[in-house]
Design a protein around this nucleic acid. Structure first.
Lengths: 194, 194
DNA sequence: TGTACATCAGTGAACGCGCGTTCACTGATGTAC
DNA sequence: TGTACATCAGTGAACGCGCGTTCACTGATGTAC
């Protein structure tokens, strides 16, 4: 059936949104196209009208993941520019809530090792999305030059993503809370004092 | 055929060693039992004489991964106790070489997001292996009490694992080198000055 | 305004493949007598 | 010392399932006349 012209873009965006969450929740390999489309009340065949391949979709989903995270965490931070905003961002990033909901949080934290294993084409898209993400957070980052802020961004977010992942990996709740608490303190101390 | 009694343990260890490397290289989902056994010149059926399931093997492999990393990185650091040794460990952990060879390096860095998605039983084993790893590195860690050293350990290694993963994820060689260089500097500054 | 045709998002069967696990079997070594 | 039997690491076919991708088809809407 033919549908109104804006419908295709809508469907495409619905697929990306759902997939982006599923990927962050389950990992790249554990999300299946057919299951994904079924969740959207579509059939798997139509998928290839929107994406070249599963990998292509995965690439899109990384950028989308950053956007979603900004919407979730950025909003509250925006009222406080610079240092205070950064503190808010760090505390939200390393919160018990973000830890408990990988599907709605930072794609780097949720998909770190998956991304590292992707073919170059996907990693190029990841790098672009990460750079774009950085530019949108630049106002919060310590550093006088762009290069310094870039350095802060990569250090802070890779470190926090590592800590968050470790917190997700351990089995004991007390250990998990301790990891998050210590990391909040450490990253606030290290990055909110410039 | 029946084999000499020590043979079974040998085979078990051979499986763990090969699997541990394959897992770190490809991720949990992309390693297949049959392929793994074929690499060892065995057939897949025999696998279940040694392990209850693939998950069971994965659990074993995490502990083995830590051992291997200690053998690789610890040896050079051992001559310098404390601060100087820790600096060596940090520089090796964040080296271009470790970055390029996930299969022979830290299992946390290689499998971070995979571990976070495992069922509780596997995460319990991971946590135990991580604690054991910490105890063996305790002599290098800053902190007066065991709790302080534990805190240092989790902060330092989760942060470094995040940075290493990010370096592996980006596509551009220059960006990768910059991430590693900045991280070496940051973690040496933060942890080798107590 | 009405009619014939083109478009193309979405359908669902099918292809070819790989995977984790089970199971009846093999046969060299260990053990009981 | 010699013989009969038990053991069990390893074999390889089979089971049941899921996956990414392709493709002929459908049919409501858009377009040309």
């Amino acid at each position: 059936m033919r549908y109104p012209p804006e419908r295709k873009q809508e469907t495409r965006q619905r697929i990306i949104q759902k997939a982006s969450r599923r990927f962050r929740e389950k990992g790249e390999k554990r999300v299946a196209i057919a299951g994904l489309m079924r969740e959207l009340k579509l059939t798997h065949g139509g998928f290839y009208r929107h994406f070249k391949s599963k990998q292509d979709l995965f690439g899109e989903c990384l950028a989308r993941g950053f956007e979603e995270t900004r919407e979730r965490f950025g909003r509250k931070a925006v009222k406080d520019a610079g240092r205070a905003g950064l503190r808010t961002i760090i505390e939200m990033y390393l919160s018990a809530e973000h830890c408990a909901k990988p599907s709605q949080g930072c794609p780097v934290a949720a998909l770190m090792s998956d991304i590292a294993r992707q073919p170059r084409a996907v990693r190029v898209r990841f790098e672009n999305a990460a750079h774009d993400h950085m530019r949108r957070l630049e106002g919060f980052l310590p550093g006088k030059t762009e290069a310094e802020r870039r350095r802060s961004f990569f250090l802070l977010f890779s470190g926090m993503a590592g800590a968050l992942n470790l917190a997700r990996a351990v089995a004991d709740d007390e250990t998990r809370r301790a990891i998050l608490r210590d990391a909040r303190q450490f990253y606030v101390n290290s990055f909110c004092k410039w």
